[in-house]
Amino acid sequence: MSILKRELLLVDGYNIIGAWPHLRSLRDVDFEQARNLLIEAMAEYQAVSGKEVTIVFDAHMRYGRESKEKRSRVDVVYTKENETADEWIERRAHELVDDRLITLFVATNDFTEQWVIFGQGALRVPATELLKDWKHAKTLIEQQRVSLEKEQANRKTIDIPPHIQAKFEEMRRRKSKGD
């Protein structure tokens, strides 16, 4: 029996926002929207890749304790006050280093961070590679949506549950006996 390994992707949120051109320009106008679009993008990526995604944001404009939330099936972490996303990711990578059932990926363009987590056994994912993978995932999702729409448009019959079909057949037979 083979045991399936989980694949976990930790994303340095503000680092990726700063590295992706469309999010970087949006960040300067609407910081919150840039964050939301990254979360949506990672939800699409997660749906196609099968990797569990956790996005880590520095405690920017948030004070106090670490907070976590689930958005579109993506884990979103805001670090505690005075803790960087890099520090959170390094700590999490260290916790998972001996877990043989997890393959850990870290998405960041921070060169120092890449080498630290690489030294802990995680695989590094540069921002450009993650952007390319997300665009590919988005294309696959769109193709699947179009395919489903075509399939539904080409249907000639209505899906009726079997127990309702049986009732209709019973009614049809009764009517034809009465004619």
Rank of each mutant, 00 (worst) to 15 (best):
Q33M: 14
Q33I: 05
A34V: 12
R35N: 09
I39H: 02
A43K: 11
Y45M: 09
V48L: 12
T54H: 07
V56L: 14
V56S: 08
F57Y: 07
F57C: 09
D58P: 04
D58G: 08
M61F: 12
R62H: 13
Y63R: 14
E66Q: 15
S67T: 14
K68H: 13
K70N: 10
R71L: 09
R73N: 11
R73I: 00
R73L: 06
V74L: 06
V74Q: 02
V74Y: 04
D75Q: 10
V77W: 04
Y78E: 01
K80L: 01
N82E: 12
T84V: 03
T84P: 03
A85W: 01
A85E: 02
D86L: 02
W88I: 01
W88D: 02
I89Y: 02
E90R: 09
R91P: 01
A93I: 06
A93C: 14
H94M: 10
E95M: 12
V97M: 13
D99R: 15
D99F: 07
T103G: 15
T103W: 14
F105M: 10
V106Q: 09
T108C: 13
T112W: 02
V116D: 09
F118N: 15
F118V: 03
G119D: 15
Q120L: 15
A122H: 07
L123N: 10
R124C: 13
P126H: 06
P126R: 07
P126T: 03
T128N: 15
E129Y: 05
E129F: 05
E129V: 12
L130G: 03
L131Q: 12
L131W: 05
L131N: 07
L131A: 08
L131R: 12
K132D: 08
D133G: 06
W134N: 03
W134Y: 14
L140F: 00
I141M: 08
Q143K: 13
R145Y: 01
V146Y: 06
V146G: 00
E149L: 12
N154L: 06
N154M: 09
N154S: 04
K156E: 10
T157L: 07
T157N: 07
I158P: 00
I158H: 02
P161R: 13
I164L: 15
